[in-house]
Design a protein around this nucleic acid. Structure first.
Lengths: 249, 249
DNA sequence: AAAAAAATTGCAAAATCCTGCAAAAAAATG
DNA sequence: CATTTTTTTGCAGGATTTTGCAATTTTTTT
């Protein structure tokens, strides 16, 4: 087994399960503990993982000292994110918004994939920077204190100049008849522009948010190409959405 | 189960539910009470949670928590930042770059002060958003993986359109004769543009960085209006800088 | 005041890590 | 192709960290 190959597999493992144990790896690769230890050290020194006693953990990105709020319903969001990243292909231009689901997507982008990300979210951007090869472009503008994303005319202008292949959107309210809704006016404007700009719009939401409605409308379900939830696409909880014609995953 | 892994999960648990019980954790992790107790102690000693009898409580009130102990030379940087924020006046347009000193400045902006910040740094922006009344505008562009700031032509263009009253600059290399130097080409370009744009340039650096030179030059000392260090402005360590005519604080 | 629960302390076993070294494998060189 | 150089790997030892246990003390509850 080649060193590079081990490194690749280790990275994949860490990205999916958030941790690896030295014991597991020695077993899996059939090499000595020392070799695995050295592998982990190298990966850690190049900043790809965090070495800890007994194994390694995924790198909790902490540029300086900034502690991302811990994620509610992590398991579900992780599952959604895994479905979402499988849509990515080399060379794509990807527009991605904020929120914890998108943060998880950003974290799970396969290390070898080379795409260009466009984002308006500070946290998402911070996470995307951890990716070894992909490029990240932040769309600047006035920052919204509540959503921690760029908002305003500047952003809308920039969005009208690009044509992303795919757009990952999070949301608070999703309902088969009311469509996608949000509570923050400025955020709605930006999301509308994001949808407008993109060839394909992927909406990510945990089942808990299904059939909820917020105050301001972003768009109809018809504008969404693909809806990703943690549920099985066949689930009957999704029936009303299936009837709108949206694709499910 | 790895120790670090437990620590992370404990933090997540504490931050979501505001408390944890030792009994719950021993059960969840399948380790002895003593081990959990020790885990909680360590987290408490590093200031991340508050240890109480039978468990632990959350310590951080908002989503953004800040751990001074993992900033290098925190005391010095805090002192510098306190001097720096005293330069701020209501209504100013303030340009601020990245780095831990600027992060500390952002943290110490008096809550009632109403200024508009312009920044290219993700971490600084994130911190500035915590401020109750000030506005923050992020200058977008391609993000540099190493410096975590926007770089490239887009940024230079935007910087040429503004005229900030004051600019807070951090740096790695500062020397009375060699001037301000950095090691990253892209960052140098941005800093040059920041200096060009601003009416007043304030350079913040800890004494440790005095008389050090990096590979690429940003500007001469003559372009700096004010140099802020943690030292007394009269200190003889600053003599050579005083001779360049720069103001000291 | 007694009983129960939690914390502290010291200790020893187990697991993990580090260092240096030499054999094996791979790559480069003539 | 043979030889040299470099890289990778496994191993032995000693050091360090982690962990659970038991005995004792402190705090809380009844």
């Amino acid at each position: 087994m080649l060193k590079e190959e081990r490194h690749r597999l280790i990275l994949r493992e860490v990205n999916i399960h958030n941790k690896v144990l030295i014991a597991d790896l020695t077993d899996k690769f059939d090499v000595s503990e020392d070799t695995v230890r050295r592998d982990l050290h190298e990966l850690a020194n190049s900043g790809k993982i965090q070495k800890v006693r007994g194994g390694a953990l995924s790198k909790s990105y902490s540029g300086y000292s900034y502690h991302e709020q811990d994620i509610y319903a992590y398991r579900e969001k992780n599952l959604i994110a895994r479905k979402a990243v499988s849509l990515l292909k080399d060379g794509m231009l990807v527009l991605i918004s904020g929120g914890s689901t998108n943060l998880e997507i950003a974290r799970l982008v396969p290390p070898e994939l080379k795409v260009t990300f466009l984002t308006v979210s500070l946290s998402t951007a911070m996470q995307l920077l951890e990716h070894p090869v992909s490029e990240t472009i932040f769309i600047g503008g006035q920052l919204s204190k509540s959503a921690k994303i760029s908002v305003g005319g500047e952003v809308i202008g920039k969005l009208s100049e690009v044509r992303p292949d795919i757009c990952f959107l999070g949301t608070n309210g999703i309902d088969a008849s009311a469509g996608i809704t949000e509570s923050d006016w400025e955020v709605v404007i930006v999301k509308k522009a994001m949808i407008q700009a993109s060839s394909k719009v992927v909406l990510c939401a945990i089942a808990e948010k299904l059939n909820t409605v917020q105050r301001i409308k972003v768009c109809d379900m018809s504008q969404i190409d693909l809806l990703v939830t943690e549920l099985d696409p066949q689930s009957e909880l999704l029936t009303s959405y299936r009837n709108t014609g949206v694709q499910l995953a």
